[in-house]
Design a protein around this nucleic acid. Sequence first.
DNA 1: ACACTATTTAGGATTTAATCTAATTAGATT
DNA 2: AATCTAATTAGATTAAATCCTAAATAGTGT
Lengths: 91, 91
Amino acid sequence: MLNSLVYKAIAHPIRRDILKRLRDGPKTAGELSSHYDLSKPSLSSHFAVLKEADLIFAKRSGNHIYYNLNVSVANEVLSALMELFGIEREI
Amino acid sequence: MLNSLVYKAIAHPIRRDILKRLRDGPKTAGELSSHYDLSKPSLSSHFAVLKEADLIFAKRSGNHIYYNLNVSVANEVLSALMELFGIEREI
DNA sequence: ACACTATTTAGGATTTAATCTAATTAGATT
DNA sequence: AATCTAATTAGATTAAATCCTAAATAGTGT
């Protein structure tokens, strides 16, 4: 079954928004932080929660760290919820 | 978009287990409570969270209150998460 | 190696969630 | 209307999450 950390990770609106933004490609912490009225340390801890849940992963390039959406885990989340709700997935 | 209460609701393992059990049909509070080492008031508050999120609804029949899974909202959850992760749903 | 920039860790305050026991409500049945 | 059963509300406590400022780290690039 799916890791419980994932559910905790998507429980926070800012973390969901981060995930949504990462759909369109990798972003740096600074780039993401510009969208929220939140200190960088606070945002960093949101990243940590998402990383623990394995929903994102980090890659350094030059002076920046880029965050990437972990698409395979995202798919697992959906499968787990479908099972939870007893809904069949087509294909 | 989807109500934020839904994400909070599925964040707790007991609440997810309740949802799973309700897939197979309505259950009373007492019936559900027998599966958990938790006081009835605590469980009742879990029901309240699920109700607030509109994931379940209650129906009285005789001396019991039956809880039912709200399938339409369950489907909305999946759609919302698919959008969140940028995954297309077939059909 | 030194300094610069980006990000995270530490420590602490505040808020929200989860849980319990005891008391109450709601409705059903006699 | 009195009683019984099922479930919830109240009130208090403990645990977990969120957020901040200040300090530390990590890696880049001069």
